[in-house]
Amino acid sequence: MSDDLNKKGSQDRSRININEDHEVTYWTKKFGVTKKQLEDAVKKAGSTSADAVEKVLKQ
C-alpha cells in the first residue's frame, strides 16, 4: 500500500504494514478481525505477507 494517501494508483495489497493506521483499518475490515488479532496473526505468520496472515487467521 502506498503511504501517500493522495496517490490513487494501484496499491500493494500483498503486504500488511501494521504501523500505518489506514492499512490496519483496511486489513481488519477485510479479514473481519480486531487490530490485536491482526497484529498477533502477523507475528505468528512471521511475515507481513497478506496470504500468510490470512492462512493464520483461517486456522
Rank of each mutant, 00 (worst) to 15 (best):
D40N: 15
V33C: 10
G46V: 04
S14W: 02
S47K: 08
L57F: 06
K7D: 14
G32I: 11
T28G: 10
I18P: 04
E20W: 05
A45G: 12
Q11H: 14
S14N: 13
D40E: 15
E54Q: 12
A45W: 07
T25S: 14
V53G: 01
L38H: 06
I16S: 00
A52N: 13
D51R: 13
G9V: 05
G46H: 08
R13N: 02
Q37A: 09
L38F: 04
Y26A: 09
Y26K: 09
K8T: 15
E20V: 14
G46W: 06
E20T: 08
G46N: 05
E23I: 01
V56G: 00
I16G: 00
A41S: 06
V53T: 10
L38T: 02
N17T: 05
I16L: 02
Q37Y: 00
S10Q: 10
T25G: 07
K58F: 02
I18M: 07
A41M: 10
V24H: 02
D4P: 01
K8I: 13
D40A: 11
T28K: 13
M1L: 10
K7H: 10
K8W: 09
E54K: 12
Q37G: 02
L38Q: 08
S10E: 13
N19G: 15
G32H: 13
D4E: 09
A41I: 03
D51M: 09
A50M: 08
I18L: 08
E39C: 06
G32L: 09
I18A: 10
S10H: 08
F31A: 01
R13G: 03
V33K: 07
S47H: 07
G9D: 13
E20C: 06
E20D: 12
L38E: 04
R15W: 03
L38G: 05
V56E: 07
D4F: 09
A50F: 07
Y26V: 04
W27C: 04
K55N: 12
